[in-house]
Amino acid sequence: MGAILSLCAVAALALIAFIGVSAGHLQYLFGVIIPYAALLIFITGFMYRVLKWGSSPVPFCIPTTCGQEKSLPWIKQNKIDNPSTTFGVVVRMALEVLLFRSLFRNLKTQMSEGAKLVYGEAKWLWLAGLAFHWSFLIILVRHLRFFIQQVPLPVRMIEGLDSFMQIGAPLFYMSDAVILLAVTYLFLRRVFIPQVRYISLPADYFPLFLILGIAGTGVLMRYVFKVNVVGVKEVAMGVVSLNPDPKLLEGIGVIFYIHLFLICCLFAYFPLSKLMHMGGVFLSPTRNMVNNSRMKRRVNPWNYPVHIHTYEEYENDFREKMKTAGIPVEKE
């Protein structure tokens, strides 16, 4: 249900761009106005969401510890998974953000015959997730060649690495294949693993289809329905220099506008959605905190005094019984 709905939504978006450009000749709207608007929504929305998180304090030191704490000097501490220093946290977070450390731990729990639980390797989700995110990043970086006049060496190097197999012309990018495969896997597991299907919302399928649409149109544009790339860069340069030239928009194929519109949708949708995990992963208190709560007092900004049952009240309740039992009391 959610999958079909999302697929229809993405198809509708593509159709809007197609009709808008091919029939409505709204190149300026789709090529300039919507991209500016989408970027604005993305940046302000993203910041708003992060600031909103930031407006709630982290009252307690609640890291999830995965390994030995700092203890007696002769007991080996796991300085990364149970960090007692900021350095440890930085390494832990880096592993988390760059290599998906926690997901790497993933296991598959199964009930085998005789009601025996077995725990198996389950690295596919980790692998697909990592492949997807990294190829997405590489593709983003590659696209910088459309936005920078003198394309800097690192960007050219990444581009060179991505195409180093030198298959076909234009050169085939590995990241294109990887992202399509990875996203397809992420979609299929949502459909075929019953539990994952059960928890999946339209909001889970929608971004997958959107990204599939973006990558798909990108690939088509590069290898099949070629567009005037030089023209695309001219448009892009006009956009980033805040001086877009409407004349340049005419000569570019409609597939470019579909590609661009889907990207704009992704950017605008981003701050409204679970995609905010990109910013959220940095703020997760179970991962980004030092496990030093017995060494260094954490202050809760909203800590307030509470009623307690004082010793005095307690002794008043039990003085006679305490005396009989030989327990010292404050007041005879």
């Binding site: 970027l39 940046i43 993203f46 910041m47 982290v58 920078i148 006049q149 980033v240 805040l242």
Partner: peptide
């Protein structure tokens, strides 16, 4: 804002990463 320093720093980095092509090109005739 709590942990404001870190959050603002993060957001500045984010903002720069997203918008630096603009800063490189703004006002330039390409």
């Amino acid at each position: 804002l709590y942990d404001g320093g870190k959050i603002i720093a993060g957001l500045i980095i984010f903002f720069f990463l997203v918008t630096f092509p603009f800063f490189l090109n703004i006002g330039k005739v390409n």
